[in-house]
Design a binder for these strands. Sequence first.
DNA 1: ATGCGTCATGGTAACGTTTCCACGCATGCT
DNA 2: AGCATGCGTGGAAACGTTACCATGACGCAT
Lengths: 360, 360
Amino acid sequence: MKTKVTIKDVAREAGCGVATASRVLNKSGPASAGVRVRVETAARDLGFSFSAIGRALQSSRTMTIGCLVPSLANPVFAEAVQGVQQALAGSGYHLLITSSNYDGAADNDAIATLLAREVDGLILTMVAPEESPALNAARLRGTPVSLMFHDPLDGFLTAHVDNFAAAREVAQRFWALGHRRTAFLALRFASSDRSRNRYAGFHAECRARGLPDPALIELSEAEANTPELLARILASLNGPTALFASNDFLAIAVQKAARLLGWQVPRDLSIVGFDGIEIGRLLDIPLATIETSPEIMGHQAARTLLDMLRGSTPVQPPPLPFSFRAGATLAAPRAERPDDGRVAPRPPSVHSLKSHLKQG
Amino acid sequence: MKTKVTIKDVAREAGCGVATASRVLNKSGPASAGVRVRVETAARDLGFSFSAIGRALQSSRTMTIGCLVPSLANPVFAEAVQGVQQALAGSGYHLLITSSNYDGAADNDAIATLLAREVDGLILTMVAPEESPALNAARLRGTPVSLMFHDPLDGFLTAHVDNFAAAREVAQRFWALGHRRTAFLALRFASSDRSRNRYAGFHAECRARGLPDPALIELSEAEANTPELLARILASLNGPTALFASNDFLAIAVQKAARLLGWQVPRDLSIVGFDGIEIGRLLDIPLATIETSPEIMGHQAARTLLDMLRGSTPVQPPPLPFSFRAGATLAAPRAERPDDGRVAPRPPSVHSLKSHLKQG
DNA sequence: ATGCGTCATGGTAACGTTTCCACGCATGCT
DNA sequence: AGCATGCGTGGAAACGTTACCATGACGCAT
């Protein structure tokens, strides 16, 4: 079958007009029994299948949904996309996926490209949703948009968890256990409204409880993936007893770094993560974390979009639930001491750190 | 901008024919300076952008590549897709992604759908590449196909690591350390040629070294995610001293299970994984594993496909390198004992196991 | 028997783009 | 001056599909 077979070929083979063939194959109109079987056998014999392009051109619907996430290498987004796929399965819509690599300019371009492809809808997680011309173009064009992970924003619907409230809960739990000096650890703080909202909630609750402001640590990826660098940063802090990591990977990395410093988790440092990735459960010291379900988030975003595509005008759904997952990385601090009288554990010299690494 | 603006609108606004407008906007033919600026300003003013559909219909090229993976929730595949995206960036091609959820029928359907969308090429990781009618349809149609993860197969090019050889290396290392009783742990053994090839290599090397055949354990997902179930299975084995897990997640899960049984890793059981996921490095007991790069694999598959699309006929590239990553989960067995004289550790009763879980 | 409604059917326009071809005009050559 | 050449330009076909409309045939009621 060198050349592609069109509905015209089927019609010729069946000895009828293309309109009739189209009606038969789409079951969209009347047809006598005779011609029906002729068309159907012809289609089968020739191996005919519809051209989505021809269809799209005529109906101006592509049955394609554009999806933009910062990165698929981050399992949180990969799972969300998986949830989207699942919600879309059987709906006839397919997914055109792009990632921005956390680059604000790239995600604007990506949306423009998706619009040029005439996607019927968009599911987006962006770096800077507030200031994207292409996003506005989508609105003007009337293309339905559904957001994921973002907190609610002007005219858009979003599937999200309440990052602020979740972070407050962490601070509250730190406080209840007696922690006073805390830290917040983030990756790409600048390019993630999620991280910023988590910090805001954490900070607000610390204030509300009368705790000193948490130390804010922002890492590059290189630092996050190099435990000895991270250890050095950790050692330079003002001796926090509890650390809230903006995601579980960071929480795991910081544990490794603490171990390099000879600190025991949770005795010398309590750690709580965010996201609730599966592997956290399986660790030697199961990770305390805020458990969310990216998959359900993707699912909800997709269902909202499908509603719009069906013509209804859904309302902003409430935030998805999160839950605090207890874990062995969180405990009361070793002892209560006044802030200024505390003897900080002596940060190991670079030399001793290195020798520690060598044997590890 | 309620209605979409076409090249016809631009032409009318610029006072020229559509052919001229097309030539100007594509820089594909001659045009006088005057008309050129008129067309360009008109396009800008009207906010014109090409319709990918109209283009596709006329040129019979969609500039879209179809990609099928078993699941995006598995970071190995997510990273591979990331690699594909990276290789495609700037090429003008976009990615239409589908996942099969490890269902052989679903992946056949998925390919059929991608072909109906007239993708220009396919990048595939399938459950059963040997027996997919749709894959054959792609071949007949002349759509270029590039595989990922699969070992070389009849007429197709694939980006892969030599699973067989990698698994042999693991067996060899077990043997060199003095392990005699081994086990192989797999998820979805039936639906993954990768797992099967790894087992085959592991088995072959065991034979070659005169070791008894490894115990083969195949898990459901539920079992893999429930450490106590996994622990029970582990306890029922004939006391292996070394276990090769078909991927790193399993390797981490089995560690948890071993811990539930009171076994120490690596003293009572050595564990080696496969894939080399980043988190393995950060664990309390860093995971020994076969390190591969799914991202590079995706990158290579995409580059091979781009070569085909450019008209050249690339040859099968050699397998991508893997490397053994040393880790603290692998050591010599506690003591050498004749196979039959060994006192197996008593599997804990269900009751004691439960109580152990309660406090964890 | 005639008219009318119903049903099966096929022709054709339209969707947005590119490419082929033909036309007109200016220029340069013999 | 006549002719070839080249360039700028626009008309129209083609890609595959569906929707609209017209046509023809048939059955039924008057």
